[in-house]
Simulated scan of single mutants.
Amino acid sequence: MDRLKGKVALITGGGMGIGRASALRFAHEGATIVIAEKDTAAGEETVSKIRELGGEALFVQTDVTEADDVKNAVDSTVQRYGRFDIIYNNAGGSTVRDARVTDAPFEEFWSKIKLDLFGTWLGCRYGIQAMMDAGHGGSVINCTSIFALIGTHGKDAYTAAKGAISALTRSMAVEYSQYNIRVNAVAPGATATARVLKLLKEDNVTSKSLDGQLFGIIDPEHVAYAALYLASDESKSTTGHILSVDGGLTIS
């Protein structure tokens, strides 16, 4: 229960799904948690759950596509707790409007780039700066997708954004190693979140990908454990790594 004792972790999109599961897992392991979430009710509910477990948590209403919001979330973390150790850029997602590149609406492409890629870029921009200012290193965890690692149908906007996150992760791992900051990513397959469960009913691409997952749909808690490893000191020699939690999809 002490794998993150004394550390402060900021989690974007921590109000639900993988973000909430990770927040609860990190708190269970001793971390102080800041939930940066657009949905106020969801974010405050996660904070309440952490406090019920005896943990310390703060909610900061945050739209990750807005630079001022992300900077405020990081600044609020440092002001409240005096340190900044972990940022988990979890916020993101896809929709049924996505399609192959010749068919996808322009607005869907820019929406995915802004939410998934730019939101992650902003988290890294301000989160890494806070780690450099503190001078004690830290862990950056980005959320890409298994769709960024395989060929698939009908998700060209989403895969473009998530593929860019994978490349950005590797580049930043090299760039910031001199500050003892490691940068890694998790790449989940189809995971049992409310958003994905809804997509499975509406989106043929997501449902087909699930067919290739040898252990079926993934529990959000299993992604949280992968993120926990990357957040903890156990991964001090791991950087630039994309950790797949895909139920064997990439080998099936």
Results as ranks from 00 to 15, higher is better:
3 R>W: 00
3 R>P: 04
3 R>K: 13
3 R>G: 05
4 L>E: 09
6 G>A: 13
8 V>W: 11
9 A>F: 02
9 A>L: 05
9 A>D: 04
13 G>V: 03
14 G>V: 06
15 G>V: 11
17 G>D: 13
20 R>W: 11
22 S>P: 03
24 L>R: 09
24 L>P: 09
24 L>F: 14
26 F>I: 01
28 H>C: 12
31 A>F: 01
33 I>D: 06
33 I>G: 02
33 I>T: 01
37 E>A: 12
38 K>Y: 13
39 D>H: 14
40 T>D: 15
41 A>C: 13
41 A>S: 15
48 S>Y: 14
50 I>V: 12
51 R>F: 04
52 E>C: 09
52 E>F: 05
53 L>M: 15
53 L>I: 12
54 G>D: 04
58 L>W: 11
59 F>L: 08
59 F>P: 08
62 T>K: 09
65 T>V: 03
66 E>A: 10
67 A>N: 08
67 A>W: 04
67 A>G: 04
68 D>G: 10
69 D>Y: 07
71 K>R: 15
73 A>I: 06
75 D>A: 14
80 R>W: 05
80 R>D: 08
83 R>N: 12
86 I>Y: 03
88 Y>M: 09
88 Y>K: 00
89 N>W: 07
90 N>H: 10
99 A>D: 14
100 R>Q: 09
100 R>T: 10
101 V>A: 11
102 T>E: 15
102 T>P: 05
103 D>C: 06
109 F>E: 01
111 S>N: 15
112 K>L: 14
113 I>C: 03
114 K>N: 15
117 L>P: 07
119 G>A: 07
120 T>K: 03
130 A>G: 06
131 M>Y: 01
132 M>E: 13
133 D>W: 07
137 G>M: 12
138 G>K: 05
140 V>P: 03
140 V>M: 02
147 F>H: 10
148 A>H: 06
149 L>C: 09
150 I>W: 02
158 Y>D: 02
158 Y>Q: 03
160 A>H: 00
161 A>F: 08
163 G>K: 03
164 A>I: 08
165 I>V: 11
166 S>F: 00
167 A>C: 13
168 L>S: 04
169 T>Y: 01
170 R>A: 08
172 M>D: 00
173 A>V: 03
173 A>G: 14
173 A>W: 04
175 E>F: 04
176 Y>R: 02
177 S>H: 11
183 V>I: 12
183 V>C: 05
184 N>H: 00
184 N>D: 02
186 V>N: 09
187 A>I: 05
188 P>Q: 03
192 A>H: 01
193 T>R: 02
193 T>A: 03
196 V>G: 07
198 K>Y: 04
199 L>W: 08
201 K>F: 11
202 E>H: 10
202 E>D: 14
203 D>M: 12
204 N>T: 13
207 S>E: 12
212 G>D: 10
213 Q>M: 14
214 L>F: 06
215 F>C: 13
219 D>A: 06
223 V>T: 01
224 A>H: 08
224 A>Q: 08
230 L>Q: 01
233 D>N: 15
235 S>G: 00
239 T>W: 05
241 H>W: 03
242 I>Q: 00
245 V>P: 02
249 L>T: 02
251 I>T: 11
